[in-house]
Nucleic acid binder design. Structure first.
Length: 265
DNA sequence: CTCAGTGTTCAGTG
DNA sequence: TCACTGAACACTGA
């Protein structure tokens, strides 16, 4: 479940469970794909007995700031998430790591498809992969003129450009489609051909969508009724919006794209 | 059995 | 160097 709002929700839940507490135990499973550049053993040793000061996020990455470096850095890939519970019996299927905190709270990262990553960094914000991220729309969304200038250099379809983490950190497939739907922009449009008015709308909708999704704790059942999100799933040939407009599916930027020709130009 | 998939990376091309 | 495209990665669930 991992686009910006889901990761921000994970960050807040992790902060509630861990901030100010020590990590008493670290359980791991052997997985040289998900653990990148660090063995589970060394990872566990770096975290054990440390106090968590706060939890950070940029784009789709989340990290724990401990009282000693290095710090753990997580990416949830397609199917990773953060689960918080108290009883060991609730340890999720496909778990990769589980922390036991002072007070008995447990925090685990499961990841069925193993596209997620667990890393160790001395200063996550200034090292790869975070160093290469663009702006995070929840933290600092640039002015429309700045966006317009960036988009002017890109000839790829706007849908593909929205997915570029080096520009829009944290935007994933459903957010990109939602932004273009609400801004009334056809996903195939070359980014450099967007008008200033369109870039302005795109910026406003990106901000609105991310803020709203975060405000409802990334709980998609609480996303506004009119959002494309609720009707975009599964390449259903007769899918329609609430207003009866046809939803079509295409592959753009290598990803399934849902859009509404009647509303997007 | 087949295929899509809330993501990223890398090789190849222009 | 840079922008861009498409394949590869791994594996579940429909």
């Amino acid at each position: 479940m991992p686009e910006l709002p889901e990761v921000e929700d994970a960050r807040r839940r992790a902060e509630r469970a861990l901030a100010g507490r020590r990590i008493l135990e670290v359980a791991t499973v052997p997985d040289p794909i998900v653990y990148e550049g660090v063995s589970p053993r060394r990872f566990a040793a770096a975290l054990r007995h440390r106090r968590v000061e706060r939890v950070g996020r940029k784009g789709k990455h989340l990290w724990l700031e401990l009282d000693r470096r290095p710090w753990p850095l997580f990416h949830f890939g397609m199917t990773g998430s953060l689960q918080i519970y108290r009883d060991e019996s609730e340890r999720p299927r496909f778990w990769k790591v589980e922390l036991l905190a002072e007070g008995g709270g447990r925090v685990a990262m499961p990841d069925a498809r193993r596209f997620g990553r667990i890393r160790l960094r001395h200063d996550p914000a200034t090292e790869a992969p975070l160093r290469d991220l663009g702006f995070d729309p929840l933290i600092a969304l640039p002015a429309a003129e700045v966006l317009l200038r960036e988009l002017a250099r890109r000839t790829a379809p706007i849908k593909a450009v929205l997915l570029d983490q080096g520009l829009f950190a944290g935007v994933g497939n459903w957010i990109a489609d939602e932004v273009l739907f609400q801004a009334g922009i056809r996903p195939h449009r070359p980014a450099h051909r967007l008008t200033p008015a369109e870039v302005s709308r795109l910026r406003a909708r990106l901000r609105g969508i991310v803020r709203r999704a975060v405000a409802v704790d990334a709980d998609s059942d609480r996303f506004p009724r009119g959002w494309l999100f609720h009707r975009r799933w599964g390449r259903d040939a007769d899918a329609r919006t609430g207003r009866g407009d046809k939803i079509v599916h295409a592959t753009i930027g290598g990803r399934t794209t849902a859009w509404v020709p009647a509303r997007q130009r």
